[in-house]
């Protein structure tokens, strides 16, 4: 996937002035200081934002996006939130067990880390060819990061993941792009 001469600004605040990037197969971590534009880049690649100039070429048609916020529907329970985007019940149950989440819980009953894991499962089960993840391990402790990272690795999908932590990069065995 190639990012070609990408220009983007929020009203009067420019974020990218002709950004060029090449993202290969496997898992790539996107690093850089806060506010540099990691989330914006992920959204531009996902097509959730329109660039003012430039393009993202050779990207898969269906992309799974894990937002920086969990964005779970509070009026549905854990299972219902996941099944909203995917029909893969068996894999869902397996992942819920693996990540130690009770699928019948209401969203208001989840801790920050638990909600993050639910958002992760939803992202992984969405039928897509690529994963874009914005700080997917936020609120998880070391052991859970290892577990979640191994689940991401075994998807065998190209993934672009924004993070601030080198430990997470290591857990994912990922390449790094610094913005």
């Amino acid at each position: 996937m190639k990012v070609n001469d990408l220009w983007f600004s929020y009203e009067n605040k420019p974020v990218f002035k002709g950004l060029n990037l090449e993202i290969g197969e496997g898992i790539t971590c996107l690093m850089g200081e806060s506010g540099i534009g990691k989330t914006t880049l992920l959204k531009l690649i996902a097509g959730l934002l329109e660039p003012q100039k430039g393009s993202v070429d050779s990207k898969p048609e269906k992309i799974s996006f894990m937002f920086q916020e969990d964005r779970l529907l509070p009026w549905l329970n854990v299972r219902e939130n996941i099944l909203l985007v995917s029909e893969r019940r068996k894999e869902m149950e397996q992942l819920l067990e693996e990540l130690e989440i009770d699928g019948s819980l209401k969203i208001s009953e989840l801790s920050g880390g638990m909600a993050r894991r639910v958002a992760l499962i939803r992202c992984l089960l969405f039928d897509s060819k690529m994963l874009l993840m914005d700080e997917p391990f936020k609120g998880m402790d070391g052991k859970l990061v290892e577990k979640a990272a191994s689940i991401i690795r075994r998807q065998n999908k190209p993934a672009l993941i924004s993070t601030h932590s080198l430990d997470e990069v290591k857990a994912l065995s990922a390449k790094v792009i610094t913005l």
Binding site: L48, R71, L73, L76
Partner: peptide
């Protein structure tokens, strides 16, 4: 707006957006 953006990212149908986001 965040939920609507999530719905766009996961390509939820118009019916699902209506039933699971707008109605609640």
């Amino acid at each position: 707006r965040d939920l609507l953006e999530m719905a766009a990212a996961y390509r939820l149908s118009k019916w699902k957006r209506f039933r699971y986001i707008y109605v609640p």
